[in-house]
Design a protein around this nucleic acid. Structure first.
Length: 283
DNA sequence: GCTTGCGCCTGAATGC
DNA sequence: TGCATTCAGGCGCAAG
């Protein structure tokens, strides 16, 4: 599942492989994959044809390739999106949604099994695209100010995991790294945000940075073929996960078996000893 | 204005 | 065996 570290690995791959490449043509096979491009698939193709890719940028889980006319190819991978750079003649993937033919014969491909991802042309240029105005800076941006996020977090009337997943508070965190950061910070997912001490809020935010930085250097987290880099290689951070997808395995801090709870209609993996459920009204 | 819940989607895994 | 159901979860939007 692509979260910030996986998207960053892909961004770096694109920076290495397709910057300065020219798009000579494109084909959209699934119109849903360009649903965020309101002018439609034909307009999408017309706007990339003949353009050269000049930069690869990212905020949170959003990725964009800046074009030489100052528009940008804005991409979100959703649950299963992949951006691949393939040599000429490589067979089409089963879920190939968009193909970009590059001048040197290679192809940039958007492959997406579940079609939660999408591409669009943003006219925003080489800054933050206007479509991303509601997305907060991620923990690796210069614009990120942890003190501001801590205060915002403590003003919320919700629980800490929902807040971490809210891209308008801090971006880039999905279910996997939320669980990992909460495990690291020894906080229960249902902890009310208004009861967080400043030190606890800083602790969990620092943990998101630490965990995602480690995941980036491992090439991201791959559970299956649904997440790969631009060259099709899997990341190997899954073996370093402490809580996520480790039901029944001993917590590396205390030995208690990791448990899986249903929370917010999704899985939450916790150590029941290190991350005890908060008791109301005080703890 | 802020918080919460649902629908979108496909394929693997599970249930009967 | 085969068909039906459940599950995975990021995002945008509607409802509360």
């Amino acid at each position: 599942m692509p979260e910030l570290p996986e998207v960053e690995v892909i961004r770096r791959g694109l920076e290495r492989h397709v910057i300065d490449a020219e798009i000579v043509d494109a084909e959209v096979f699934t119109s849903r994959s360009v649903r965020r491009h309101l002018a439609g698939a034909a307009d999408f193709v017309a706007r990339v044809r003949g353009r050269t890719l000049v930069a690869a940028r990212r905020r949170g889980k959003f990725l964009w390739l800046v074009l030489d006319d100052d528009a940008a190819l804005l991409t979100h991978l959703g649950m299963s999106g992949q951006v691949l750079v393939q040599p000429a003649g490589a067979p089409d993937e089963p879920h190939l949604r968009i193909r970009f033919r590059l001048a040197d014969g290679r192809e940039l491909r958007f492959v997406d099994q579940r079609t939660f991802g999408s591409m669009a042309i943003s006219l925003g240029g080489d800054v933050i695209p206007p479509e991303l105005a509601h997305i907060a800076p991620d923990p690796f941006e210069a614009a990120y100010d942890e003190d501001v996020v801590v205060e915002d977090l403590r003003r919320r009337r919700t629980n800490v995991k929902r807040a971490l997943l809210d891209q308008s508070l801090v971006s880039g965190i999905g279910n996997i790294y939320a669980d990992e950061a909460l495990w690291e910070a020894r906080l229960h997912y249902a902890r009310p945000t208004e009861t967080l001490r400043r030190s606890e809020a800083h602790r969990v935010l620092a943990a998101t940075r630490m965990v995602m930085a480690a995941a980036m250097s491992a090439g991201g987290t791959s559970f299956d073929a649904l997440y790969v880099g631009v060259d099709g290689q899997s990341g190997y951070f899954a073996r370093e996960l402490q809580a996520y997808d480790r039901v029944g395995e001993p917590c590396s801090r205390c030995g208690s078996p990791i448990r899986r709870d249903r929370f917010m209609n999704r899985s939450s993996f916790i150590c029941p000893s290190c991350q005890p459920r908060p008791r109301r009204p005080h703890w």
